[in-house]
Amino acid sequence: MTREMPANPESRIPNPGSITFIGGGNMARSLIGAMIKGGTPASTIAVAEPNQAVREQLAADFGVSVFADGVEAVGNAELIMLSVKPQVMRKVCESLAPVIAGRRPLIVSIAAGLRSEQIDRWLGGGFPIVRCMPNTPALIGAGATGMNANPAVSETGRAQAASILAAAGKMVWVDDEDLIDTVTGISGSGPAYFFLMIEALEDAGVAQGMPRETARTLAIQTCLGAARMASEDPEPPARLRERVTSPNGTTQAALDALNNGGLRELVASAVAAATQRGRDMSRELD
C-alpha cells in the first residue's frame, strides 16, 4: 500500500529543531536548497562533508554550518540525514554510534539497497529510521521519492521526513520495506530509462535524415510534454495512449513495432534487474 503526498507542500517542516546532513553531495545540496527555499532557517542545518571545496560552496550558497567530520556535525541534531554512498555507510554509522546512542534522533537514509535493520544495527540499535529512495530530478524540484518508516518512527518523525523529501518533488509512503527496492527499479533508476529513450528517438531521427540538434529538441520536448499530460490528466496512461492512436494510422504502426519488439517485456526485465541489484547490494554490504 502506498500513500502519495504532493510536491512542494506549503507547510514547513514541523518543529525543525536541528538537521544534520552526513554527506554534502548533489542530492543533499538539492534537499538543502529546497528546504531553505521553503522557509527552513539555515541556522538549523549542518552538513558534514570531507571535501573542503564542497563544504565551502555549501556554506557560501546556503549559509549552513559545515564540518569536515560527521561526529562534530551531529551535535544535538534531532534529525540526521544519511546521504553518503552505500559502500561507506557502515563505517559512517559506526563512527556516529557512540555520539548519538543516548538520545536516538530520527535517522533518514537515502542510500540504495541498505535496509533499515542494517543501519539500525550499525548505529547500535533502537533508532527510528526512515528509508528513502529519491531520484535525480530532485535536483530541479521534480523528484519522485518512495519512503518507508520502521516501527520506531513517530507520526511527528514521519511528518519531518516527508516534509524534507516532498520539498524536492512528489513522495509516497510504502508500507512494505521490500518494495523500496522496487521503487529503486521504477523511479530511482527510472530517469536513466527515459534518457535512453530520448537518445534512441534522437538517433532514429538522425537515421531518417534529420539534423541531430533538431531530433534532440523534438525528442526531449515530446517526453516532457507526454509526462506533463500524464501528470495533469486524471485519465490513466493507457487511455491517453488510446486517444492519440488512430486505427491504421502512423502512431498505431509505431506502437505495433514496439510491441512486436517486446517493449513491455524489456521494461519489466529492466525493473526486475534493478530491484534485484538493490537486494544484492544489501547482502554484499552487510
Rank of each mutant, 00 (worst) to 15 (best):
R3N: 11
R12H: 12
I13V: 15
N15Q: 14
I19F: 12
F21T: 06
G24C: 10
G25K: 03
L31W: 02
A34Y: 02
M35T: 07
M35K: 03
G39R: 10
P41G: 09
V47D: 05
V47I: 13
A48G: 14
Q52I: 11
Q52H: 06
Q52M: 07
A53L: 09
D61W: 00
G63E: 05
G63V: 08
V64W: 02
S65E: 13
A68T: 11
G70P: 04
E72R: 10
E72Y: 00
N76T: 12
A77G: 01
M81G: 00
V84D: 04
V84T: 14
M89L: 15
K91Y: 02
K91W: 01
C93N: 05
C93P: 00
E94A: 06
L96S: 04
A97Q: 05
A97E: 06
V99P: 00
A101N: 06
G102Y: 02
R103I: 01
R103M: 04
P105M: 08
I107V: 14
S109H: 08
S109W: 11
A111R: 11
A111P: 12
G113N: 04
R115F: 05
E117C: 04
Q118R: 11
Q118D: 13
D120K: 10
D120A: 10
W122I: 13
G124H: 07
G125M: 06
G126N: 11
F127Y: 15
P128C: 00
I129T: 07
C132T: 15
C132G: 04
L139G: 00
G143N: 06
A144E: 02
N148S: 14
V153G: 08
G157M: 08
R158P: 00
A159Q: 13
Q160M: 13
Q160Y: 03
I164Q: 02
A167M: 06
A167W: 08
A168G: 08
K170S: 09
W173P: 13
V174I: 15
D178M: 10
L179D: 14
I180W: 11
I180Y: 12
I186S: 02
G188S: 03
S189Y: 00
Y193K: 01
Y193P: 03
F194E: 00
F195I: 09
L196S: 01
M197L: 15
M197S: 08
I198E: 13
I198N: 02
I198Q: 05
A200G: 05
L201W: 01
R212L: 03
E213Q: 13
E213M: 06
T214G: 01
L218Y: 06
L218I: 14
I220N: 00
I220S: 01
I220M: 07
Q221R: 09
A226G: 12
A227Q: 07
E232H: 08
A238V: 10
E242F: 01
E242W: 01
T245I: 10
N248P: 00
A253E: 09
L255H: 12
A257E: 09
G261M: 06
L263C: 02
E265L: 06
L266A: 15
V267L: 14
S269Q: 14
S269M: 09
R277L: 09
M281D: 04
